[in-house]
């Protein structure tokens, strides 16, 4: 059994609590932490011609922003803290993409924060945490 933990991470408060929990767990188990951030994206959405023209540029900007503002600072502080850490930055459906990351990294545990979408959209479409709890191939810890 591999000793990797995937953490689904964004800029929400719940994600920060999840990070703290994941770090303590990783330290206790001597596990490696994979911090994954998913930029929500569907190849079946609709764009205007201008958006199509700008898409490649925007994508580069979005990737850079996520890396610089979100992932790089966390990676740096965890490395300084002595935790073995790697990051994953991908576009896609959030739950599906996190499952892909788990499979690819061979992790044995997923940790996520509970909030994300508004109450209404969660009711209509189900929350990310809810669908991961049902569909993830490994044990999931949902941090409030």
């Amino acid at each position: 059994m591999s000793n990797k933990i995937v953490l689904g991470y964004d800029d929400s408060e719940a994600a920060k609590s999840a990070l703290a929990f994941a770090v303590s767990l990783a330290k206790a188990q001597g596990a490696e932490l994979v911090i994954a951030h998913v930029l929500e994206w569907s190849p079946y959405s609709f764009l205007t011609p201008e958006e199509i023209e700008q898409r490649h540029k925007r994508r580069e900007e979005e990737l850079k922003r996520a890396e610089d503002a979100l992932l790089a600072p966390v990676r740096k502080s965890l490395e300084d803290d002595g935790v073995t850490v790697s990051t994953e930055l991908q576009y896609g459906h959030i739950a599906e993409t996190l499952i892909d990351v788990i499979k690819k990294s061979g992790a044995s545990h997923l940790i996520i924060g509970r909030t994300g979408h508004s109450a209404l959209s969660s009711r209509l479409f189900g929350s990310v945490a809810g669908s991961l709890a049902q569909a993830a191939p490994v044990p999931v810890t949902i941090v409030p």
């Binding site: 930029l39 609709f46 764009l47 199509i52 490649h56 994508r59 896609g92």
Partner: peptide
């Protein structure tokens, strides 16, 4: 992923 897909261009 994140680039314009064939579907989007067609739509």
């Amino acid at each position: 992923a994140g680039e314009v897909s064939h579907f989007q261009a067609l739509a």
